[in-house]
Design a protein around this nucleic acid. Structure first.
Lengths: 335, 335
DNA sequence: TTGTATGCGTTATCAA
DNA sequence: TTGATAACGCATACAA
């Protein structure tokens, strides 16, 4: 079923059908009705490929996520769901591309095959080959997280540096003198993953400013890893009375370790950081933390991308979010 | 950059370029080399829309997941990642569609706009409107999970009924006389979600067969819900000595409740069921359970879909997997 | 208010 | 071994 067949059945020309559908030309009410009636009867919808070819745009955006091998954290998965939802509100479909390395087939198909009008990049590194590749290709893109260089392009990000610093100040205000940062995995830090490296610098700076004894450790994205991580940490530095973290997946394990070590939260130990809301609420007791505003970030990213597709020449726009720290029940004055 | 431009630069016709790329016609080695050289220099890739229009296929499949509002469980998210990976191996891109209701825009775009060559449906219900719609539309599809009717189409599924029955038999063999099933949320059962309803029937049947006192409860997909669920359960029926579950998300909460109630696993209480491998291993002690073979199911589903796209008229094929129950450490003889 | 004709970038058929 | 050319289904500039 194509537009010609609709035209034939409605007794008009193909262009009239096209205009009746797009509204880009006035069509008399009677013929419009007749056309819509026929379309409704046969369940016609324009062929997306033909339309894309003629229009020069696909009404599709690409969503680049880390490759399948690497386990996605719940927050990342939240991004996928929220971005798809936001895109849907703009009548955009989403093509998923699991790309990590530079020479990735699906990524290349996406951008050089004109499969998408724009791309949303997740999990960007401080120096990111994919961002560089996109910039060269000229395909509009927005990244969640931002690169180091000035040539960053559009992005929306969370101010990890500032937020983690705030957490440290909060703990310092409560009288904690020895604090640890439980960061994302070591390889994330090594590869220049923004949240990990910015959390570290924010932590280090704020601790120095408040003359706090700071210990920073990396921890794999696993609950069990969080358990051993905290055990090791407190056996080496038993003076530590509080933890700041950006590793939500490790949180349940950290909780277990603290319980086993007799460090009751918040009476004898405080925990805070930047994590997904769900994980903060699942913690016992509920975690005082900055919640990652997944939905808002996704919405902003899609909105930015839509803008950019419409006006590719416009200057880069950046959105740096600093959500409030939700005071729950996991921090208290140091004893 | 298009094929005509490549042809011009290589001094050949467009068709020769096309054939050099597809290999569907022999092209002399010299001209082929020259063409590839030019293509390499300018970084040309065929326009996907034009190719789709000419070829009549998009080299894209649709992946239908539950709408964004509903939280995806880790296993479902594993499916998304694995399916995208499997599709990539077949040089297929994946269009994500979060669709639940019947009248869903993105779902309709997908199938009636010829955006995809086929669809993979996840989270199917016993009676599924989307499956019915796909069948009517004629778009090839494979579902993960199967409907009740004979008009099921292609699917791959896990034998929840048989697996849960096996778990019950395992517990019966160990001497347990009062066993509970912790199922997925009530609304899943009500809406005819396959795994929930089949787990229930397998549980009921096996328990009857072995004259076991059976208690079946539903539990929201939340760790905290698992906690209260087990507490309530054991306060009402303290004689219960074992739990069978298909609710992996509730598992951490169940673990906490059992610990608090002094029901040491496996000495004083046994736990088993069908859950994602990761969750089974994260349980303390590691859970004796049938692991949901996410990767295998995704691979089989994609393979089935590729077959179906190639031969739409072929009879429906079904894959019902029965992975072994991995003996870990969470079950022991009843005391 | 509507119809005709052209182009979008490929693939594939028909000639040579 | 290669080149011209007709689809593919739609949008749109140009006519009427």
């Amino acid at each position: 079923m194509n537009i010609g067949e609709i035209a034939r059945r409605a007794g008009v020309s193909r262009s009239t059908v096209s205009y009746a559908l797009s509204g880009k030309r006035t069509v008399s009410e009677v013929t419009r009705r007749r056309i819509l009636q026929v379309i409704d009867e046969v369940g016609y919808r324009p062929n997306a490929s033909a339309r894309a070819l003629a229009e020069g745009r696909t009404r599709t955006i690409g969503l680049v996520i880390p490759p399948a091998g690497r386990r996605l954290t719940p927050v990342q998965l939240g991004f996928v769901a929220s971005i798809v939802a936001a895109a849907g509100r703009h009548e955009l479909d989403v093509l998923l591309s699991p790309s990590g390395g530079d020479h990735d087939r699906s990524f290349e198909r996406l951008i050089s095959g004109r499969r998408v009008d724009g791309v949303i990049l997740t999990e960007v590194r401080l120096r990111d080959a994919r961002a560089a590749r996109l910039r060269r290709s000229g395909v509009p893109f927005v990244s969640i997280g931002h690169t180091a260089g000035a040539e960053a392009g559009c992005w929306v990000d969370l101010d990890y540096e500032g937020l983690i610093a705030r957490c440290v100040h909060h703990l310092a205000d409560l009288g904690h003198r020895a604090v640890a940062l439980v960061n994302r995995p070591q390889e994330f830090l090594d590869s220049g993953y923004g949240p990990a490296s910015r959390a570290l610098s924010g932590f280090t700076a704020a601790a120095a400013e408040r003359s706090i004894e700071a210990t920073a450790v990396c921890c794999p994205d696993e609950a069990t890893a969080g358990e051993t991580c905290v055990e090791d940490l407190l056996s080496i530095r038993p003076e530590i009375t509080a933890i700041v973290t950006v590793n939500e997946v490790a949180l349940p394990g950290m909780e277990r370790a603290l319980r086993r070590l007799g460090r009751a939260v918040p009476e004898r130990f405080s925990v805070t950081g930047v994590v997904g809301r769900h994980w903060a609420e699942e913690f016992h007791p509920p975690l005082t933390a900055a919640d990652v505003p997944v939905t808002e970030m996704a919405d902003r990213a899609v909105a930015l991308l839509v803008e950019r597709i419409a006006t590719p020449a416009a200057p880069d726009r950046h959105v740096l979010l600093t959500p409030p720290i939700s005071l729950r029940a996991s921090t208290a004055p140091a004893r």
